[in-house]
Design a protein around this nucleic acid. Sequence first.
DNA 1: CTAAAAGTTAAACTCAGCTTTAAGTCAAGC
DNA 2: GCTTGACTTAAAGCTGAGTTTAACTTTTAG
Lengths: 140, 140
Amino acid sequence: MKIGQLATLAGLNASAIRYYEKMGLLAPPQRSSGQRRYPSDALHRVLLIRFASDMGFTLGEIKLFLNGLRDNAPVGPRWKKLAARKLIEVDQNIARSLRLKTLLQNLTQCHCASLQQCVGALGLSENLRFVAKRARAAKS
Amino acid sequence: MKIGQLATLAGLNASAIRYYEKMGLLAPPQRSSGQRRYPSDALHRVLLIRFASDMGFTLGEIKLFLNGLRDNAPVGPRWKKLAARKLIEVDQNIARSLRLKTLLQNLTQCHCASLQQCVGALGLSENLRFVAKRARAAKS
DNA sequence: CTAAAAGTTAAACTCAGCTTTAAGTCAAGC
DNA sequence: GCTTGACTTAAAGCTGAGTTTAACTTTTAG
């Protein structure tokens, strides 16, 4: 299979496939007069990369557990550890998004003429100060 | 107030304040022998920018409704429209995150030795193909 | 008075995940 | 055999929201 076909089947650009190879996620395939020729199971591998990427893993993380054969730890436990950590991130993201949603709903439903009025009316000024305080604390 | 104090109170770096000014979100303040001197209400403005930024608005969007006095539309309705649109994005983000959470939970709880086995066992292969198909469709 | 801390600028750098460009080589159809 | 489309490379560009750097000036503390 040539790179264009693989890319089409995976829903990517060919440049993305080459990028994965360069980043060490995809083994360099055989070449036929300079051009890459992929075995058919390469598609599964690429789809797996896309899948993990869609799940929020960085390419670095994906590389870690796809090429982890040289490490001592078995692949399964390491992968589960990664997944568990990502699960925490996802949960935090959900919690944050829910808070944002509440705030946005309040803001879209209020009858103020300006955002500044809204913020005052909804008592968000304290929120603002709190956020700033936390940011200051986080920096020190 | 000098820029450092404003930055500290807002929980930002001074460079961020200068960046906001450069991007047109913050009016250039008075200067005293070349240095910026801010009135006390500048803090409120900066906090407002941070607040909106935390809510997921881009600086471009924030600029739009903070400096929108030259436009015809009143600030309130325009802001609400933006907020409503952002609300949709937030909802999509939540939905996506919830799906990811389910997948990650399944993956962390299964007993496969490798991710590839997991994907097979959980019937995610179809998912992968579906994702690829959607990606192909989205490109055409 | 002097040294350190905080201010100034423009321009370059950061992060991730690619895409685009330029300049060339190879393959496929007529 | 010729054109067109697909492939090759390295290097540069893109996005957003700033940060960092370098070289310099101003303010503040001792």
